[in-house]
Design a protein around this nucleic acid. Structure first.
Lengths: 203, 203
DNA sequence: CTTATAAACTAATATAGTTAGTTTATAGCG
DNA sequence: CGCTATAAACTAACTATATTAGTTTATAAG
């Protein structure tokens, strides 16, 4: 007896695994990857917990699937938003979209943050679209090979750092967050421009 | 019967709570705040688990205590390191010390990251020394009231963003991390200088 | 109709934390 | 010195979680 519709019977494990991951992704949207429980998934499917093991290897397997899916969705979102922009505009658009994603889906963003815990480097490569988007943007700044990669890390750090602190309520003061973020991105852009001639460190 | 030494008998709850937190901090250094277990603490004290409840309200209470203590230690470390430096030097010293702390004590750094989960805003204020250190540094840049606070958030974002990604192995490429970090901090400093006259955003 | 098997189930185990209620040891007092 | 209140330990029991083993059931295919 398959999990729901008794339609096709052969090699259906793939389908039902996706069903489980889909439900897990919904749960994760509210409670984060760590908040996923097999009990909730089983209830949603009107099935007992052990039945799930016919399709998944365990909870961590579910979390891995969720992480991958979320990474892909973030990558898609960023790519769409950035399309049509370039230079400073592209950086601002990306920064805004990244933050918006975290606001709209805190649980999913938690999955992005915890991604390395559940996926090894190779598996992550499959969902590394976010990085690719950043690389393509910074290419327009005329940054050479290694310089570009260091810049990618810088942008990731800046954007992730702020958003991470924000969604975890790490900023205590009553000071406008939109303003802080806009200034941070501008500061990053200024730094990028100021470094274009003479990118080497002074000390 | 007190947890260990049958010395003073009255109001010893404070003492034994500190004993528990101390052990928990040691455990957290290796496995993070989330990795603390009452079982481990009880074993270390040669006591059964429920006995701990005479001194703590539960696991989250322990985590709260650990978080507070770690926050204070980080604050102390940063303050010591920054003392004697000013301007760009102070920023670099702080950035370096912050990252070093995360490297030497990954578990403690996890507590710093998760701090808002276990402590409300008021409780965090008690361990908000790190922020105070940053404020004092940026005062030397001639930043006015709000500008300074936005700049504090920027520095926190930059430093935390990179370190967080690094310790969670979020950087996939085989590219020197020290170099990336140094460039990021320089980029931040450049941006700070470039923004000194005309700090307002253009759009 | 038979049979092989996918897919569900029940039962049991392990590890967590937590609560209730009981026992024990001892500090302080008469 | 002995009584008593109480701090502080204990055992027992319960919850929720994941996981594994072994059994039953339904059905697709021959």
């Amino acid at each position: 007896m398959p999990l729901l519709s008794p339609s096709a019977m052969s090699r259906k494990a793939r389908t039902d695994r996706e069903q489980i991951i889909t439900i897990a992704v919904e749960l994760a949207d509210r409670r984060g990857v760590e908040g996923i429980t097999l009990a909730d998934i089983a209830t949603r499917l009107n099935v007992r917990i052990p039945s799930l093991y016919n399709y998944i290897a365990g909870l961590d397997d579910v979390r891995r699937g969720v992480t991958l899916l979320v990474l892909v969705r973030l990558g898609d979102t960023l790519r769409e938003v950035v399309a049509g922009h370039s230079g400073d505009d592209a950086v601002r658009a990306l920064a805004h979209a990244y933050r918006a994603f975290a606001h709209e889906h805190p649980g999913w963003y938690a999955a992005v943050e915890a991604a390395p815990r559940y996926m090894d480097a190779e598996a992550q490569a499959a969902g590394a679209q976010p990085v690719q988007v950043v690389v393509s943007i910074l290419a327009h700044y005329g940054l050479q090979a290694e310089d570009a990669l260091h810049a990618v890390r810088a942008l990731r750090s800046v954007v992730h750092g702020f958003v991470s602190l924000e969604v975890h309520h790490g900023f205590g003061l009553a000071l406008d967050l939109d303003e802080s973020y806009a200034r941070l991105i501008d500061l990053f852009i200024r730094g990028l421009h100021a470094g274009q001639n003479g990118n080497k460190r002074q000390s």
